[in-house]
Design a protein around this nucleic acid. Structure first.
Lengths: 200, 200
DNA sequence: GTCTATAAAACGATAGAC
DNA sequence: GTCTATCGTTTTATAGAC
């Protein structure tokens, strides 16, 4: 959004995404797999097939790229949640479907952790005074869950949303630490039963 | 344990802990606050009041110091759990007391995250093929909780232990990400009520 | 707009005097 | 055992040619 050429009409011969998009996409994956600290600009540039020095034409600093990564995650998460709303009418079905989506990523989560959680945790340790750059990411998930619980008719929708997201994030930490994908999948199923058993 | 002089009889004038202990202690705090990647050997040495180059007399590599940090956390956690067992007879009281201990650290957790969880998450991203160096740390907590749930007479003690630790770790991630100590404290109280309500 | 070459700083680790 | 000085590498970032 800050600096980009006219990407409206595809100019290149191959229909490959623009360099900026390729950089952000590569950064998303590398940051998820290696963490922010271990991901160098050289890695990102190589993965995106862009010359190293050229990265600074699109992003002024490494922090800017990480910001773009957070933003991209936010967009993807919002579109995922929007699709869940289209696909399922009842709030319970939507929440259970969300658990299903997260369970599908059990293998990736066991290997690299939750993309939002690990990113948030790492960014929270950066430059003490800094703002929690990744907080909005977690807030999207919390707000959506709270909205569903409220639609069920629960007064403590806020607490329930925190409990749901907590249990998911905690399962991701454990699953990742112990290297056990089944742990995440199993907890997701327990959460689905928990949602089912909620008095509506 | 690897390399140390005769620390049995205090030789120094002031009764200050040995250099190795000071280094590990400083590393524990700095790693918790800044993460492994951002904590440099220079930081650790300065905080421990030990000359930079001298660190390598006590630890062959930075990875070795992190290993010592994990080990120190493990020792401290085990002694905390042992004290909980001495102080409380019933398993439910022990589990609730553990939640109390964790709730007391809400401020620190909101600022820096759970010491075990954030360390585990960061180490899980290091050198893909490497073993989960911090897994034993989480396992200590899981095993102890499972033991308590089994003493209550619950068959699904394993699942309950995972749920308990998951909810704690998840609350820590959220509390840290959003910068809200009350979130952690509130979830700890919810967990205490959950333990109370368990059929025994 | 795109890319190469390189500056500048930070960090882990070592050599060797005391 | 203790400490200083420093090497070699990595990494962010910039200058400037095309």
């Amino acid at each position: 959004m800050t600096t980009n050429s006219g990407q409206t009409a595809e100019a290149a011969s191959v229909a490959r995404p623009g360099k900026r998009e390729r950089l952000v996409s590569a950064a998303c994956e590398l940051v998820h797999h290696q963490g922010v600290a271990r991901t160098t600009l050289a890695h990102i540039a190589e993965a995106a097939d862009v010359p190293v020095g050229n990265v600074y034409y699109y992003f002024k600093t490494k922090e800017d790229i990480i910001g773009a990564v957070v933003h991209a995650h936010g967009d993807r998460l919002e579109s995922t949640l929007a699709e869940l709303e289209r696909r399922h009418r009842s709030p319970k079905a939507r929440l259970k479907a969300l658990m299903g989506v997260l369970a599908e990523r059990a293998d990736s989560t066991a290997q690299y952790g939750c993309p939002y959680g690990t990113l948030s945790s790492e960014l929270a340790k950066q430059a003490d005074g800094s703002h929690p750059l990744a907080a909005p990411l977690m807030q999207i998930l919390l707000d959506w869950a709270e909205q569903q619980f409220r639609a069920i008719g629960r007064r403590e929708a806020h607490d329930l949303a925190i409990e749901l997201v907590s249990r998911y994030e905690g399962s991701a930490v454990l699953s990742n630490t112990l290297g056990q994908p089944e742990l995440m999948a199993r907890q997701a199923r327990r959460l689905q039963r928990w949602i089912d058993a909620l008095p509506s």
